[in-house]
């Protein structure tokens, strides 16, 4: 469902992502970890069309993001690390806006919007302008907007930042359900417990290179070589 092939991104003489290759099957939940500046967000930005790769290929749902960006993006739901919204639009208007960008049938849009509003417990705040929103509310609106068109692939960058415990619980439940329904999720996070709780597979990137890529079961085995904690594995690998 997601295939990254020898993906490289350089900024002048600096290589942010170096020859990254990865393949995710349908319904797989992938946790993408790494220290700050390791290349996580750059990889995600290339996967969502915000950055053009210097070399390599990204295939999403069978479509090359560079050559068939329309089809690839249509299959993707993206949640960025910083939930920037149009400040002068209300949350609901932002959802209508997102639905329109994904060419959702107008008749079904209102119904679907109400559905995601309930799902993420957005309440009456949804009719206020984004300029009044807290970080958590912005994040939840972004998540709602990404779910509107029922994507086959979710690309998520730090989804739990700014969420209160209840909202975080709701979001984790939604992601689990989506994964069970066959949606492939590529999630970057700094939270090791969240990655352990949700993901089927873990990847760790350091200095632009993928230094660990295995299933959660393999990770559990690997942990035993240390003190049984994922944190120790992570610190050792990214040292």
């Amino acid at each position: 469902m997601i295939k990254l092939h020898q993906l490289t991104k350089t900024f002048g003489s600096f290589t942010a992502v170096n020859n990254l290759s990865l393949e995710l099957k349908q319904g797989e939940f992938f946790g993408f970890l790494g220290p700050n500046g390791a290349g996580k967000t750059t990889t995600i930005k290339m996967m969502t069309g915000l950055f053009a790769p210097t070399s390599g290929q990204i295939i999403i749902n069978g479509f090359d993001i560079q050559k068939n960006s329309f089809e690839a993006k249509l299959a993707t739901g993206f949640i960025p690390d910083q939930p920037f919204l149009y400040e002068k639009l209300t949350g609901k208007e932002f959802l209508f806006f997102s639905a329109g960008l994904y060419k959702l049938n107008h008749g079904m849009t209102s119904e679907r919007i109400e559905e995601v509003i309930d799902m993420l417990e957005l309440g009456s705040w949804i009719d206020r302008r984004a300029e009044d929103y807290s970080q958590g509310m912005r994040q939840r609106v972004c998540i709602a907007a990404a779910l509107l068109h029922r994507p086959k692939v979710m690309v998520v960058d730090e989804p739990m930042v700014g969420l209160d415990p209840r909202s975080a619980h709701v979001v984790k439940r939604i992601f689990k359900e989506l994964s069970q329904q066959g949606v492939t999720i590529f999630m970057s996070t700094h939270s090791l417990p969240v990655a352990e709780e949700l993901c089927d597979r873990i990847g760790i990137i350091k200095d632009g290179e993928l230094i660990f890529n295995n299933t959660i079961e393999a990770l559990h085995d690997y942990k035993q070589q240390f003190d049984g904690k994922f944190e120790s594995v992570f610190l050792e690998l990214t040292k």
């Binding site: 915000l50 960006s69 329309f70």
Partner: peptide, 14 residues
């Protein structure tokens, strides 16, 4: 468009 432009840039629109 500001930093909210990510929404358009990542959407299936030319």
């Amino acid at each position: 468009e500001g930093l909210s432009f990510w929404k358009i840039r990542s959407a299936p629109i030319t």
